[in-house]
Every structure is written in structure tokens, then in C-alpha cells.
Amino acid sequence: MSSQRFAILAVCTANICRSPIMEALLRAELDDEQFEVASAGTQGWDRQPMDGMAAMELMRLGYSNTMFRSHAIDTYLVDSADLILTATRSHRSAVLEITPAALRRTFTLLEFAALCEIVDGDAPRALVADASRQRSKAPADIDIGDPYRRSPEVHRRTADQIDAAVRTISERLNALVAVS
């Protein structure tokens, strides 16, 4: 990840269901001249394709990630990200075990989406800083459940939940770089 653009890291367990959907949707929604997006797994299966059900849901939403290969999370990815979005609080904890100093820029996806609607900031980094200061205002239910090996309905709910959160976050971040 380069230092010029605002770098976002999406994290889940194996990096084959939730975080690849987050990555693909964030990439599609955000201004690629201003933002870069990667994803990783806390128990990463290295170089694996996206889960088939997750890939089908991404296609249903109008996107593809056919070239995707999973990655295990590492210190470099965490340290170079300006914003880390995890599927669950346990993933957030796993990120902080790697780099405790990442706390101020690590949120669950649902937590950050909720905070985007109530915090201030005139640039992406300022928005993340204010979200960190006001983290206590986020809702209690901020985890996205793991759809792996579950029914198509669970995969659909998960993808729709990620899509809604990504749209909220992307609209806010794109508006901030449009004016700066």
C-alpha cells in the first residue's frame, strides 16, 4: 500500500468470504485515485480464491473479484493502513494483538459505518480520528456473522449487510476527498 492514497484494510477470519466482499465493494465505490483497498484474514488461507457462495453474492450485487487470492494478515498490512475495517470485534482484537498502536484506526465495518453518520472530519484521516474519540457512541451490535458453509440466505444477508455499510462509508469518504 502506498502512502499517498488513503489505505483501507478489510479483515475477517480466512479472507475468503466477508473481507473479499468488503474489499471489492470498497474498491468499486471509492475514488481509486484517493483510496486503495486490500484485505486479509486473521487465520489467513494464503492464495485461496474467494468462497463460491460469497463470490455469487458479490456477482448478485453487480461486482466480480475473480482474480482474488486470500492473504494472511501481517504487520506490514496493519502498519500501512490508515483505516482497518474488520468483520467482528474478535477480528479487531486480532489486529490489535499484531499492532496495539492500531487501535485508533481499527473498527468493525458496522461500527465505522454507524460512526460515519455522527462524527466530524474534514478529511479521511480526521474522520477516523474523530470516530476513534467517539467510539463509545457506536451501537452494541457491530459484528457481521460468518456465512462460511452456511445457507444461501445467510450469505445473502451477510452480503447485503456489508453492501449497506460500505455504501455509507464510501459516500462519506468520497465526499471528504471531493472537497479537499
Results as ranks from 00 to 15, higher is better:
Arg47Trp: 09
Gln43Cys: 15
Glu57His: 08
Arg92Ala: 14
Arg105Gly: 14
Ile144Lys: 03
Met53Asp: 07
Asp51Cys: 01
Ala140Asp: 15
His71Pro: 00
Ile84Arg: 01
Tyr148Arg: 00
Ser70Trp: 03
Leu103His: 12
Thr75Glu: 09
Trp45Glu: 15
Asp51Met: 01
Arg133Ile: 13
Ser90Phe: 13
Asp74Ala: 07
Thr88Ile: 08
Gly44Glu: 10
Ile84Pro: 01
Tyr63Val: 05
Met67Cys: 12
Thr66Glu: 15
Arg105Thr: 13
Pro100Ser: 05
His155Trp: 07
Arg156Ser: 07
Gln43Ala: 15
Arg104Tyr: 09
Met59Phe: 08
Val78Glu: 09
Leu77Tyr: 04
Ala126Lys: 01
Arg47Cys: 02
Ser39Asp: 09
Ile144Gln: 06
Thr42Ser: 10
Ile98His: 04
Ala87Lys: 00
Gly62Arg: 14
Ala138Met: 14
Ser80Gln: 12
Ala126Ile: 13
Pro124Lys: 02
Met56Val: 05
Val128Arg: 00
Glu117Val: 12
Asp46Pro: 00
Leu103Ser: 13
Arg133Thr: 14
Thr86Val: 11
Asp51Phe: 03
Trp45Cys: 07
Ile144Asn: 06
Thr158Cys: 15
Thr106Arg: 00
Ala138Lys: 13
Asp79Ile: 04
Ala102Pro: 07
Ala138Ser: 14
Asp141Cys: 05
Glu97Leu: 07
Ser151Tyr: 05
Tyr76Cys: 05
Asp51Leu: 06
Ser132Thr: 06
Phe107Met: 08
Ser136Ala: 12
Arg60Ser: 11
Arg92Gly: 08
Ser93Tyr: 02
Ser39Asn: 03
Arg104Leu: 12
Ala123Cys: 10
Asp146Glu: 07
